[in-house]
């Protein structure tokens, strides 16, 4: 299928992208395009102009030290999944990236694109929220807790572009996902991270937006073991219900995936 007509511009630098966006406030940013292009082909999106930021070199990098890993917004899922830096510091993040879509999608799709789109069933938001990451944009830095504001909604302003995301290195972390068998999007995915400040549990796929589970966090802070979460029941009232699974089914998946994420976290150092 062929999208509606639009004009395409490729930005060579972040500054150029910001200037183009300020000149054309109606333009859409194109990163890897693995969601946007498909949506445009289905004619569910109809931007008059696309600004391609997917090939800006300064946005594609992975840097790590003992305390954090910082990843450029245009870094592909494949690069994160294969990165020795990510695998050694936050293996759960590499595992998560490797489970997105399929190999061809991972060669194009980007961290910044996924996080900015905030699809309720995307994987990365769970890691960003559970690891307490910081999203740096062309205007400011935003804490993960303040970033994801609702279904496909974020704190980003219209002319703001994500440049990088900083993930603090946790003591232990794990990510377990029950993928939709056709799309590989998360029916439910749970990211668990333990740091010296406590435990954070973030759930994607189950609700309209990624969310934390305070009861699981408290239980895991007291006892970081699968048994700590196995009897915690999630209220299905506000969870997603569709042909793939009911809200009650997803509520149960949250508990099951949380257990598996803890098992994985304990298996890694």
């Amino acid at each position: 299928m062929i999208p509606y007509g639009f004009s395409y511009r490729r930005a060579q630098s972040l500054n150029e992208a910001v200037a183009l966006l300020q000149k054309s406030p109606e333009a859409k940013l194109l990163a890897g395009g693995q969601t946007l292009v498909t949506t445009m082909k289905a004619r569910l999106a109809n931007p008059a102009e696309l600004i391609d930021i997917g090939q800006i070199r300064e946005l594609s990098f992975i840097r790590g030290d003992n305390s954090a890993i910082t990843i450029g917004a245009a870094t592909t899922h494949a690069s994160v999944a294969e990165s020795a830096t990510v695998k050694s510091a936050i293996p759960a993040l590499a595992i998560l990236a490797h489970q997105i879509g399929d190999p061809a999608v991972r060669h194009m799709g980007t961290l910044g694109g996924s996080v900015a789109n905030n699809d309720p069933a995307a994987d990365y938001p769970a890691a960003v929220l559970a690891l307490g990451a910081t999203i740096t944009t062309t205007a400011r830095s935003i804490a993960a807790d303040d970033f994801f504001t609702g279904m496909f909604a974020t704190a980003l302003a219209e002319d703001e572009i994500i440049s990088e995301i900083r993930f603090p290195v946790p003591e232990k972390a794990g990510y377990a996902k029950f993928p939709n068998p056709a799309s590989r999007y998360a029916m439910t995915g749970v990211f668990v991270a333990r740091t010296k400040d406590g435990v954070r549990v973030a759930v994607t796929g189950a609700g309209p937006c990624v969310f934390r589970v305070a009861e699981m966090e408290a239980a895991l802070a007291a006892n970081f073991a699968p048994a700590a979460v196995e009897n915690i029941r999630i209220d299905p009232t506000d969870l997603n219900s569709d042909i793939h699974g009911s809200a009650e089914y997803r509520a149960n998946l949250v508990t099951v995936m949380a257990k598996r994420a803890v098992v994985q976290a304990l298996g890694s150092s």
Binding site: G33, V37, M108
Partner: peptide, 19 residues
């Protein structure tokens, strides 16, 4: 529709020629 772009497999129906 998989082809290689700069040595990596991608779905050629999911990127524009301009990209």
């Amino acid at each position: 529709c998989v082809v290689h772009v700069n040595g990596r497999a991608v779905k050629s129906c999911t990127l524009f020629a301009g990209q």
